[in-house]
Amino acid sequence: MRKKLKETRIKKNIEVKEIARKLKISESYYYKIEQGKRNPTITLAKDIADLLGSTVDEIFFDDNLDETSKETA
């Protein structure tokens, strides 16, 4: 799930320091979200997706949907 978040951030060439500053959260908190150790609020997830030019579903849920569909196939 978080793999997509990190990949998107890297593709957009945005450093953790910059994204954390724009979101008004600590860098360590953002890292924990990327590592799957913390779950963002819905509002924060939307803000992250907006900042990365994506959607909440694409960043936080698409990988899980792919995994689920593989398991049932």
Rank of each mutant, 00 (worst) to 15 (best):
G53F: 11
D57P: 09
Y31C: 12
Y31Q: 10
P40A: 14
F60W: 04
T68Y: 06
Y30T: 08
K4C: 06
Y30M: 07
I48W: 06
A20S: 07
K46A: 06
D57I: 14
K6W: 04
T68W: 07
K32V: 12
K6I: 06
I25A: 13
I42E: 04
E67D: 12
V16Y: 05
T8A: 09
D50W: 08
Y30A: 07
Y30P: 02
K11R: 11
L51T: 12
Y29K: 09
I10L: 11
K22S: 10
Y29W: 01
I42N: 07
L51K: 11
D50G: 04
E7I: 01
N64H: 13
K37N: 12
E15Q: 08
K12N: 01
F60A: 07
A49I: 04
E15K: 14
M1P: 09
K46Q: 09
K4Y: 00
T68R: 15
E27Q: 04
E15L: 10
F60L: 09
E15F: 02
T43D: 15
E58V: 10
D62K: 15
N39I: 14
I25Q: 03
G53A: 07
G36D: 10
L51S: 07
A20L: 08
E18C: 05
I59P: 02
S26E: 06
T72W: 09
D47A: 12
